[in-house]
């Protein structure tokens, strides 16, 4: 499950990136490259763990993730700017 602070809790879609899951549920999130190099989708990870299939190149802080190229490993809680 993906708990999006100030929005709602949604079910993660298998084989989809976190960004795609968020989009499926019509929650507005900024994105540009969708490949992890621009950082436009930078989001705070409040709880849980994610993994990357491709190395994220954009700058992300220790408590931040790039939804465009990450996949949740557990139930997570995030906050979209």
């Amino acid at each position: 499950m993906v708990d999006i602070k100030h929005h709602k809790t949604v079910q993660h879609q298998p084989n989809k990136s976190l960004l795609e899951t968020i989009e499926v549920h019509n929650i507005e999130i900024q994105y540009h490259c969708r490949e992890g190099y621009c950082g436009a989708c930078r989001t705070k990870l409040l709880k849980g763990e994610v993994e990357y299939k491709t190395d994220p190149l954009a700058f992300i802080d220790d408590n931040e993730i790039l939804p465009c190229c990450c996949f949740p490993l557990s139930s997570i809680e995030i906050e979209i700017d």
Binding site: E28, Q30, Y31, C33, R34, C38, G39
Partner: peptide, 29 residues
Amino acid sequence: NHRMSAIGLGQPFDVKSNPLPWMNNYLSS
């Protein structure tokens, strides 16, 4: 707002949603 927060300068402007959402289609690789 997005660019400034990326380097720790906060979000000084009061624009919460993207006024030109179609731009993202052109900026996506």
